[in-house]
């Protein structure tokens, strides 16, 4: 008798992803899909998507979905959750969407302790528009708008979103995970599920930042990109739990 060790989650629609080879968006959809399956959430979920490469998350996850304007997903999700408090509401946002144009919305949703879950995909660049500098772009990292690399004296230092949100009183769960190797992927899977549970238990705002790669715009092959997350990105964005429900780490 064989059993499935891994198969595509039920709540990830059976269609090809439009993402580039080696891009982690699809993998993260998979982790969210597993959590939706395991918690039996698809019938009570409303997801809110970003503007950016993740915009088509509405095609990929088998739930009701809303396509928000750039950066405003936490406000849209707030509106949904306030209207329907017994539903499960998440946002899925990239670093251009959340950490640039959407800073106001994310900070205030977190400050209110809004009972929603935010999955924040940080790949340190604007992907959809072709690889421009994001607020999360590392100092020295080259982009199409920082051709000689990001200069700290000109463009400042990258925003560490988990650290910033961790200064607020109300968030219930803040964690940074990565998906560059199996051990981190398993941790990411657990954390996404935990964040979902956090909302289901009514504990308030849960936030999971996922370090992920953008080989195309990083001008790397997918394997080099994994290494860059491991060696460079995670040095500036430490992979750790910042806050867990019940006050534990």
């Amino acid at each position: 008798m064989t059993r499935k060790v891994y198969s595509r989650p039920q709540s990830v629609v059976d269609m090809p992803f439009h993402y580039c080879p080696g891009c982690h968006h699809g993998l993260i959809h998979g982790l969210m899909g597993e959590a939706l399956d395991e918690l039996d959430l698809t019938e009570k979920t409303i997801g809110v998507g970003p503007v950016g490469c993740g915009v088509f998350v509405y095609d990929y996850l088998d739930t009701d979905m809303i396509q928000a304007s750039h950066g405003r997903a936490p406000a849209v999700a707030t509106g949904v959750k306030r209207a329907l408090p017994d539903r499960f509401v998440f946002t899925y946002q990239g670093d251009g969407d959340l950490a640039a144009i959407g800073t106001s919305e994310i900070i205030h949703a977190a400050a209110r302790g809004e009972n929603i879950t935010v999955i924040f995909v940080n790949n340190a660049i604007f992907g959809m528009t072709g690889g421009q500098t994001a607020p999360t772009t590392l100092v020295g990292q080259t982009t199409t708008t920082a051709p000689i690399g990001r200069l700290e004296e000109v463009e400042g230092a990258p925003i560490q979103v988990c650290e910033m949100l961790n200064t607020l009183q109300k968030p219930a769960l803040i964690s940074r995970v990565s998906v560059h190797n199996p051990a981190n992927i398993m941790r990411a899977k657990k954390m996404i599920k935990k964040a979902f549970q956090c909302q289901l238990e009514g504990r308030g705002f849960s936030f999971v930042e996922v370090l992920s790669s953008c080989p195309t715009n990083w001008r790397m092959n997918p394997l080099q990109a994994l290494q860059w997350i491991e060696e460079t990105m995670s040095a500036y964005y430490p992979i750790k739990d910042f806050r867990m429900p019940e006050g534990g780490q």
Binding site: R72, V76, A77, T78, G79, R82, H108
Partner: peptide, 17 residues
């Protein structure tokens, strides 16, 4: 809300719901 932008997008969300 935090801003007019936040407010109209919350309307967007609530109306979607």
């Amino acid at each position: 809300c935090e801003s007019e932008i936040g407010a109209i997008n919350m309307v967007f969300g609530a109306s979607s719901a």
